[in-house]
Structure formats: C-alpha cells, structure tokens
Amino acid sequence: MLNSYFNFTSGEYILELVCPAGNLPSLKAAVDNGADAVYIGFKDDTNARHFAGLNFNDKKALSGLNYAKERGVKVFAAINTYAQTGGFIRWQQAVDRAQELQLDALILADIGVMDYACEKYPDLRLHLSVQASATNPEALEFYHRNFNIQRAVLPRVLSVKQVEQVAQFSPVPIEVFGFGSLCVMVEGRCLLSSYATGRSPNTYGACSPGSHVQWQEKANGVLETRLNNVLIDRFQEGEKAGYPTLCKGRFEVNKHTFYALEEPTSLNTLSLLPQLQKIGVTALKIEGRQRSPAYVALVTQILRDAIDTMKKDPEHYQAKDEWMDELLKVSEGSQTTLGAYHRPWQ
C-alpha cells in the first residue's frame, strides 16, 4: 500500500490516516488525497452523525467501497450510538449490512451491539468507538476480552503522557484524534445535548441538533443563537457567529461572562506527530463526517503531507506554517488547540 507505514514487529500500522466521509464525494476526496482508511455511517440513528442529507445507503456504500478498494484504501463503518430499547433491530441490521458489504472494520460503542456482532460474525474486525469512553487499559481489557476488539479510539481527554501510558498497557492498538471539532467532554458520557433538547449523541446520534437551533437577528444587528430556546451565544454586529454547540457558548459564572466550558475551536495535533509516532499510536483520526468534501480533501491532504514529512525525519520535523494557516481556515472559530493532549489546556 502506497501511503501506509507498516510496523513488521507489531504487525500494525503506525499513524494510519483515518478520514471522515459523510457522503460519496467526501469519500472520494479522502481517498484521492491520501487517506489510508475512511469511515462512514449508514442513514439512520445507528451512527453519531445522524444528520439530514448525510450518510450512506447500500448503493452508495457499495460504490464508495469499490472506489476505495480499487485504490488500496480501507473502509470502516461507524455504528457508534447506543442501541435504544425496542429498536435493537436497526443496530443489528447495520452490523449485518456492514458484514454483507465486507467492510474492513466496524466502529462500535454499545456492548449489546458488540456482543451481537462478535457472536454472529466472529471474523468481523471490531474497533472500539470513542463513544465507548474507554480511557484506561482496564476498560480496554474488558472490551478485548469479551468482544475481541482489535483497536480502540481514545476519548479526547487524555494528555500525551496519559495516551502513552494507555498505549503501553493496552491489549489493543490505539487510535487517537488528530484534527477536527473538539469535544470538551468525555465522548459517550456527555448528556448536555439531551438535557437541553431531548436528543444526545448516545440516544439520537447528534449533539446540539439542528432541529432545535434558532438564529435570531435583532433590530440592532445583534445575532442570538439558541438551542431549544436556551441562549447559547450573542454576537455583536460584525462579530463572527458560530453554530450553537452548547459547550461552546458564552455563559455567566461568578458574575463573569465568558466561554465557561470551551471556546469555538478545533483540535490540531500537527505539532505532536513525532511524539504520537514514538508512543506507538496506530492510527490518527480526522473528525468531520458532517463537513464538506472540500474540507475532507484539504485536511486529508495536509495531514498526509505532515505524516509523510515527519516519517522521513522525525527529529527535525516541525509543523509548517502553511499547513497551520490552511487548517485554521477550516477550524471552528478560526482557531486551533492541542486540547487535553497539552496539560495546561486542562
């Protein structure tokens, strides 16, 4: 495979680039720009980007799979919400569909779904989704022992040192997030969205769902963004307004109004690539199945370039200014952060 770096000692890839595809054009953009793998979701609440107009029906999935396979790129399916009571059949069907399509791996969060998948299709390769909230080797051992997971995606709450410790004692190879929108909370354990709207990533596959968003422009030019009537942020005329993701609004704490939880920002790990390689991180994931094909193309291309550059000379690697500038343009609030990887962020 052209793009991949295979570690013959561990039998695993090092920094395999895993890219988001919300639709077929995005999948092609990822494949054409250097993805080692793409991940997709099906058209229902079985995946954590359950948005209107997004995701793959059987025909599109097959067509995407063929496109990727012909070019040596793997396809994973994210079936990473929690199977709801009375609706287990949908998650079962999603697993069946992934098996029929012969996708390369399933990304799962729910132990019920994992149990079904590994009982019915013992040869199916399972990855643990970030939505399973596994942040320590003991938790990973549970999923490995019971469901034979082959890889785990870690929540965006660990410092680099902690990622290293998990990787060291983990029974399975580790995937981490490299770029994209930043979840401030442990994934799979954040119910803020359902508290405000009744819909959460766990129950519905969406956070701060568009169905509950209101943009209200006042006579004085002030723009207010609301989620189910809760005021998330207020922008003065000319101020750049962002989507009302509820952890990224301005709130008042102790009589002081600020981004009490987090600012609108994206995670960017380009400067950490040598460290992530040294730790033995197997795969680097780009967030953004809800973003455009142009976003997928740009971010995939830059991360491909960065990983390749770093591989050639890790000692002298530095994130290039032009990469950082380009990524800023597609980042939330036009800013990026190292997030929890960098201790002072915490």
């Binding site: 401030v184 442990v186 952890c247 002081h256 009490a260 939880l261 201790r343 002072p344 915490q346």
Partner: peptide, 19 residues
C-alpha cells in the same frame, strides 16, 4: 450529572489551570 471532562471548569472560572 451530565458530563465529565479532562478540564476543570471550576479552576477555569477562577482563571487557574487544573494543575
């Protein structure tokens, strides 16, 4: 209880790092 983070929001509200 709705959410957990690596970040301490109480410390943040006092302009202090978690450490």
């Amino acid at each position: 209880p709705l959410a957990y983070s690596a970040r301490c929001f109480t410390a943040r509200s006092h302009n202090l790092p978690k450490d």
